[in-house]
């Protein structure tokens, strides 16, 4: 009986959590007049797929998703690469000022992007990078958090492995890519997924550095679609569904890495 109660409660809560997603999918398949009809239709008896085509082409969601994919991939690859390099230096190399530089890396975690974004806008504008992928990617290439996380992972690599590799003829560079990175693969994966998720969801920065279609990302595109397509509200819903597909795939394919990335990522805030 108590078990049944638990399932009932779980199901009610699941329905509440899912409802906004459900209604979005349903409304994307309804005609605007059906959406506005009262009482509302909660099931698409006659699904219309036209809204997806309209969002993809008329609403430029296709273009925006391509932009988002490029920018997100750029940020993810850049962050992971730069973090690997810096983390290796902090974990395996000795050089004067190493401790100080590590603190510098940690300090960057205490300066939120929201504190510096307007000056960064000026910098990107001065560099002539408004409305370019470069302008969207550059400020996010480095991550103190990622370097910190990977350094921790590298520090667990036994020193004897480094010695063995040195005798086997592997210098730092080859040891990094053939031994250290493969051994830190779970952390690299978690960091990649986390970077992808954060970069894909960015809103403030793409909003201010893009004012045309060339580099505008899908998040800004959604807000624009909502403003412009009020008469075809189903198109807006279709856009939301489309924009969420990559993250849904990410969630389904890399759930474990995502959980790891988020729990570690929360440290950063």
């Amino acid at each position: 009986m108590r078990l049944a109660g638990r399932y009932l409660l779980l199901s009610v809560l699941a329905l509440i959590v899912l409802f906004p997603i459900y209604i979005t999918v349903v409304n994307s398949l309804l005609r605007p007049d059906q959406i506005a009809s009262r009482p509302p239709g909660l099931f698409p008896t006659d699904p219309q797929w036209g809204a997806y085509k309209e969002a993809w082409e008329g609403g430029h969601i296709g273009r925006y998703m391509l932009n988002s994919a490029i920018v997100t991939t750029g940020i993810m690859v850049g962050q992971v690469l730069l973090a690997i390099l810096a983390a290796y230096a902090f974990a395996f190399l000795e050089f004067p000022g190493r401790g100080f530089l590590f603190v510098v890396f940690l300090t960057t975690m205490m300066i939120p992007f929201e504190v510096v974004f307007f000056t960064n806008y000026q910098t990107i504008a001065d560099l002539g990078l408004l409305n370019t992928y470069g302008g969207l990617i550059l400020p996010f290439l480095a991550t103190g958090f990622g370097a910190f996380l990977l350094r921790q992972a590298f520090l667990t690599v036994p020193g004897e492995l480094r010695d063995a590799a040195a005798l086997d003829g592997y210098g730092h560079w080859r040891f990094l890519w053939r031994v250290a990175v493969p051994l830190a693969r779970p952390t690299v994966a978690a960091l990649s997924v986390f970077a992808f998720l954060s970069a894909w969801g960015q809103y403030l920065w793409p909003l201010i550095v893009t004012d045309d279609d060339r580099a505008r990302t899908v998040q800004v595109g959604l807000a624009q679609l909502r403003r412009e397509a009020l008469n075809d509200i189903n198109v807006t819903f279709a856009g939301v569904v489309l924009a969420s597909i990559p993250l849904v795939i990410l969630l389904l394919a890399f759930q474990r890495q995502l959980v790891r990335g988020l729990t570690a990522g929360a440290v950063k805030g």
């Binding site: 699941a14 997603i21 998040q219 800004v220 819903f237």
Partner: peptide
């Protein structure tokens, strides 16, 4: 229960705006 991490702030806002 984990599913809303697959939404973004913008997507959630557009959904709730409607």
């Amino acid at each position: 229960f984990s599913s809303t991490v697959a939404t973004s702030v913008a997507a959630a806002s557009v959904i709730f705006w409607t």
